[in-house]
Amino acid sequence: MSEPVIEAHGLVKRYGKSTVVDGVDLTLTEGEVLGLLGPNGAGKTTTILMLLGLTEPSAGEVRVLGRNPLREPLKVKSDVGYLPDAVGFYDTLTGRENLMFTARLGGFNPAEARTRIAAALDRVHLSAAADRRVGTYSRGMRQRLGLAELLMRETRVAILDEPTSGLDPQSTDELLGLIREFSADGMTVILSSHLLDVVQSICTRVALFNRGRVGFVGTVEALAQQVTDGAFHIDVAADGADVGALIGGLEDVNQVKPDGTGWHITAARDIRAELAKRIVEAGGALKNLDAHRVSLSEAYNLFFKEVSHEA
């Protein structure tokens, strides 16, 4: 295991009396894509700003690539790219000029910057629009220009705050494809979002934020396991057989309820084979037998239901 790219221990941020982030621990290894999930105001953006050193934590410590963002901000910021929520560019400059400006701030020499910018714009499919003013860009194009900036700077970590908010499905797909490519190239990505299917489709791990704390960190499967005790959800539809009665003798079945066209069964293990056998033996025509673990959105809802019951 390589050394962690980002490490945060006991991060706390207070504004006056209100505590926005209350003891967050995170560890990321190289090439990982971590999704930060949680309702608005859960402390996701504040945590991101603390990781970047743009906001000083009230308590706790951050190491980014082994460096403290408050002590060595320039080195940390040159290795970490940040794409803020609804990223802004200078509307009166063209896309290429905007990137040139950040390249100069990053201290690249102009000739090298020009080739890097051209390559980055090409990769995010903005070459054709590169010499148009950013004022004419759509929202998806701005987000892609933001990604091009990270590419141009060749950062090792990308922190994306709500990268897909307000995008149409096609732009979202395009953007996610790009992020996936970045991570395949070894870039470590942190991404915050409300869109659960976005997170589920590209993140290796998720962190659930609630009221300034991280309620859960792990893979989506582990989350499902935790909130549902690893239960399987099975949808059955069969003609000519009373599934409710047939299932009676099976072990590890927690719940059976009719759901309009068929039955919804919750079980501690995969009981499909036995169930199918029984239905067929009883002379029923099996039309559907579908097992799945909970989806991220179900798990998310279950998680926050639990949390709010506790509160």
Binding site: L54, L74, F89, G146, E149
Partner: peptide
């Protein structure tokens, strides 16, 4: 207002 501030401050400058 233009939302450029956080992006500029995230560049390697003080």
């Amino acid at each position: 207002g233009k939302r450029t501030m956080s992006r500029i401050l995230a560049q390697p400058i003080y």
